[in-house]
């Protein structure tokens, strides 16, 4: 699991789940993501990330996710 942080947000990538389809790379409006030489996704430009969550929503394999730290679990509210 790789973690990319920026303020209270972070983006997590699980390379074992990533098939390298580039769906997230091509869907990210900010150009944050790239595929590395192993064909796995990396957030090479994390500073540009606006944490819109498009990558998370589009990834067919649930390999990438966007989080806000200390998020309240809905069931605990």
């Amino acid at each position: 699991m790789r973690r990319y942080e920026q303020g209270s947000f972070f983006l997590e990538i699980e390379p074992r789940r990533c098939k390298g389809c580039g769906v997230c790379v091509q869907s990210c409006p900010q150009g944050v993501l790239t595929l590395n030489s192993e064909g796995k996704v990396e957030a090479t430009e994390i500073a540009r990330c606006v944490f819109c969550g498009i990558c998370e929503q589009r990834c067919p394999d649930f390999a990438i996710s966007v989080h806000k730290e200390r998020i309240l679990q809905p069931s605990l509210v």
Binding site: C21, V23, F62
Partner: peptide, 22 residues
């Protein structure tokens, strides 16, 4: 989000899971 989950065997680059999830 988890109506349709990962770990299916659709090919890398297949448009189908993207369509279904969206």
């Amino acid at each position: 989000q988890k109506r349709f989950t990962g770990a299916h065997a659709l090919c890398a680059g297949c448009g189908t899971p993207v369509c279904v999830r969206t």
